[in-house]
């Protein structure tokens, strides 16, 4: 896509852990169009967060991008100096994390924290930034913004802190908002409030949103396009309607079947056997092969490429067509 806002291609990220190398991201490609919402879904260790953190230069510890490219509006993010990247992050790309308590400064008033981003990015003058902060607090649903401006993070509930984080992330009107498990730590009713807020903001400003989540319910109800990751690779990527109607990867189907919804108390469970592994060598076969009901000899021998099986529907499975007809 030529007009994509963010294009990530063949991204590889590794972590060094004493003698081992952990292959966390193994050739991930995706793009986000202007105004689009992308849901990246996967379990722990799938590389869903790491791939996005790699792009943003927010990898911690021994994490290192070894290969690939990530272009934001034509600028190669992976080659930028730290200062240049910091300039884009926070101004053009807003970020929200799972646990607002660890990303907020506990010793700083929340109003000042929201203002800080606007001032460092020269988005607004001090006076204008103050006024915008008050507006933002109102917009994210924090009552009495002028007095709450002076509160510290510990004086807020979890849901309210996440609202503050959102206000910080959107302060400079970014074109892209990245939310890493934004509602995982929240109760269901609070999750609904936060998602409703995100949706309202998105519709108003037409910004693109990437939500990283382990929850299919969140992703499918919020996003235009779903990308499923496993073992640092993209397993399937499709527009929502296609994804709901014609899932084509055995992992996607297995994961969806693992969700027990209300009203299903008499169903038979079919757990995906086994457990996810950290890769200590680059994958040479399909990483899901040991847990897959559709696996054949060929699946043990080659690494399936992400290929198109329909309009904008990509899947990395040798037997996707059979899987799809079987599931349908």
């Amino acid at each position: 896509m030529a007009d994509a806002l963010l294009t990530v291609e063949n991204l590889h990220t590794e972590f060094t852990r004493q003698e081992d190398v952990i292959y966390a991201v193994n050739g991930v490609s995706f793009s986000v169009a202007p105004g689009e919402t992308l849901g990246i879904v996967g379990e722990s260790g799938s590389g869903k967060s790491v791939s996005v953190l790699s792009v943003l230069g927010l990898l911690r510890g021994s994490g290192k991008v070894t290969q690939g490219s990530a272009k934001f509006e034509g600028t190669e993010l992976l080659k930028l100096k730290r200062r240049q990247l910091e300039d884009i992050r926070g101004r053009d790309i807003g970020v929200i994390f799972q646990d607002p308590m660890t990303s907020l400064n506990p010793t700083m008033r929340i109003g000042d924290q929201i203002m800080e981003g606007m001032l460092t990015h020269h988005y607004a003058s001090r006076k204008a930034a103050y006024n915008r902060t008050i507006d933002l607090l109102t917009e994210v649903g924090i009552p009495e913004p002028t007095s709450r401006f002076r509160n510290y993070p510990f004086e807020f509930s979890g849901g309210m802190r996440q609202r503050v984080m959102i206000a910080m992330a959107i302060a400079c009107e970014p074109q892209l908002l990245i939310a890493d498990e934004p509602t995982t730590a929240l109760d269901v009713t609070v999750q609904m409030q936060v998602l409703a807020l995100l949706q309202k903001l998105r519709q108003k400003s037409r910004m693109s949103v990437v939500i990283i989540t382990h929850d299919f319910g969140v992703a499918t109800n919020f996003c235009d396009r779903i990308m499923v990751m496993y073992a640092g690779k993209v397993m399937e990527s499709a527009p929502l309607e296609e994804f709901l109607k014609r899932p084509a990867h055995p992992y996607t189907i297995g994961l969806k079947a693992s969700i027990i919804e209300v009203g299903q108390s008499n169903r038979v469970l079919q757990p995906i056997p086994g457990t996810t592994q950290q890769l200590t060598e680059p994958p040479r076969a399909c990483p899901f092969v040991d847990r897959c009901a559709f696996a054949q000899d060929a699946c043990h021998e080659e690494l399936p490429e992400l290929r198109s099986i329909g309009s904008d529907h990509l899947v990395a499975c040798l037997r996707a067509e059979e899987v799809m007809s079987h599931a349908g």
Binding site: V188, Q191, M192, G217, N221, L240, L244, E261
Partner: peptide, 9 residues
């Protein structure tokens, strides 16, 4: 408040 996976968009 439960977000079920919808049948269609």
């Amino acid at each position: 408040s439960i977000l079920k996976i919808p049948e269609s968009s």
